[in-house]
């Protein structure tokens, strides 16, 4: 995509954001909405500047939790997918449970983990792991299975064994799928880290939000929300960037199957 194309794709949404911010600012300034309910963009910005050191302290705690959780979850997702794929019996037994496990609300697991493991980092990490492993393992499982039948037939004809099929065909084929799973996990990672912090923490943006809400500090909450969005986007963007660096074999032509 050329530079010009990129600009053309981006400016409508930039314009919309500017319009929203302006309307927001004007309606708060005009007294349409009370400031304690909805602080104006400028007072949120002010709050961010004033509370910057504290915000950063909490942000770095959340980043740590989200990144370690994301990495652990992704690794677990990869290993689980490989095991399930290579041992069909295990896949048949475990896969339905895996899907069911995703319907257990994270908010519900949190307190249980806290009961079992206390208020330390571990229960929070486990929560982020649980959220992050699933999209990765499901995407990888699809990638292992969704190989080009022509390539599979070729490998079998020349006598490739099960391990060679896996390492030379299924695994590399799953790399593109791995990244789509990683991107979903990346967008969940920061969110679940914040939820984990709500459930009991002494630092982190989640913790900061709970504190601010108790003191009706709406501007602070908005500042935290803004940073959470920014963090999520950054993690997602980093994964997308790594994807572009790793996957160079895809034809440069646009369209078609990703």
């Amino acid at each position: 995509m050329g530079n010009k194309g990129w600009h053309n794709a981006v400016w409508p949404s930039v314009l919309l954001i500017l319009v929203i911010l302006t309307v927001w600012q004007l309606s708060v300034d005009g007294g349409l909405v009370p400031e304690w309910q909805l602080p104006s963009p400028t007072s949120i910005l002010q709050e961010m500047i004033q509370g910057w050191p504290r915000l950063m302290l909490n942000t770095s705690a959340t980043i740590k939790l989200a990144l370690i959780g994301f990495a652990g979850g992704a690794l677990a997702g990869f290993i689980i997918a490989a095991i399930l794929h290579l041992i069909p019996f295990v896949r048949k037994a475990v896969y339905p449970l895996l899907v069911v496990s995703q319907n257990v609300p994270v908010i519900a697991i949190g307190p249980i983990l806290t009961i079992w493991l206390g208020y330390g980092v571990l229960p929070k990490l486990i929560l982020v792991w649980i959220v992050c492993f699933f999209p990765v393992s499901v995407a990888m499982l699809n990638g292992f299975k969704d190989t080009d039948p022509n390539l599979r037939n070729y490998m079998q004809m020349i006598g490739a064994g099960k391990w060679q099929l896996f390492s030379r065909l299924e695994l590399p084929n799953a790399v593109t799928h791995l990244f789509s799973g990683l991107k979903i996990a990346a967008s969940y990672a920061v969110l679940s880290a914040v939820v984990a912090e709500w459930l009991g923490a002494d630092k982190g943006l989640g913790h900061y939000m709970i504190l601010s809400s108790k003191g009706y500090e709406t501007a602070r909450m908005f500042a935290a929300v803004f940073l959470i969005v920014l963090l999520s986007l950054a993690v997602f963007g980093a994964v997308a960037l790594i994807e572009r660096l790793v996957i160079r074999w895809r034809p440069a032509k646009g369209g078609g199957r990703a």
């Binding site: 037939n153 070729y154 079998q156 020349i158 006598g159 590399p172």
Partner: peptide
């Protein structure tokens, strides 16, 4: 298996 080499109709080169 493993006693033949093979050239299919689709080139079947690994894209990666």
């Amino acid at each position: 298996r493993g006693h033949v080499s093979y050239m299919p109709q689709q080139a079947s080169l690994m894209p990666w």
